[in-house]
């Protein structure tokens, strides 16, 4: 019972960590723009946090480069359960314009599981907020479901 309450209240104020997994900065400045006055996600209780150890949601931008792959895994493992991942931007979805480049993995979901995909190059801040709102719905579903949510990637870093 108590766990259910904790899980439901998590939805009221999720903390978000942002990680650039090799993107071009365009999505990153749009993610930053979501916390500035025009869009202001803090009114939804969402806070951008520096450390993945405090975060419920990881926002990933970028196609995942060879050098960043291990760090992305490590950051994912550092997040507490339950963890959610939002892939922001075309190249985080599939590699996008960088598809086939020699140093690119081709999407965040090649390395870690992704819950919500936000397309666009870059997506508008409104779209990013809509993506986060989708995760909040998912959080509620998981909180109300019988066995909650426990998940970990198998391949270690």
């Amino acid at each position: 019972m108590l766990e259910k309450i904790v899980a439901l209240s998590r939805k009221a104020s999720p903390w978000v960590a942002h990680f650039n997994s090799g993107g071009c900065n365009a999505c990153d400045i749009e993610v930053m723009a979501t916390i500035t006055p025009r869009f202001d996600v803090e009114r939804l209780g969402i806070q951008l946090k520096g450390s993945p150890r405090h975060a419920d949601i990881l926002i990933c931008t970028g196609p995942v480069t060879g050098q960043i792959r291990e760090r992305l895994l490590r950051i994912y493992h550092q997040m507490p359960q339950p963890k959610y991942v939002v892939a922001v931007g075309s190249c985080a979805l599939s590699g996008g314009v960088f598809h086939g480049c020699y140093n690119v993995m081709g999407g965040v979901d090649q390395v870690i599981p992704v819950d919500v995909y936000v397309p666009g190059c870059p997506p508008r801040p409104d779209a990013i907020i809509a993506g986060i709102a989708k995760v909040l719905d998912k959080m509620q579903e998981d909180a109300l479901s019988k066995d909650g949510r426990e998940r970990e990637v198998d391949h270690g870093c």
Binding site: N20, G22, G23, C24, G62, P63, T65, G66, Q67, I68, R71, F98, G100, C101, Y102, N103, V104
Partner: peptide, 14 residues
């Protein structure tokens, strides 16, 4: 550095 090296120069050739 090198965390964001995507190989764009090579990709341009294709």
């Amino acid at each position: 550095l090198g965390y964001v090296h995507r190989g764009i120069e090579k990709a341009c050739q294709d």
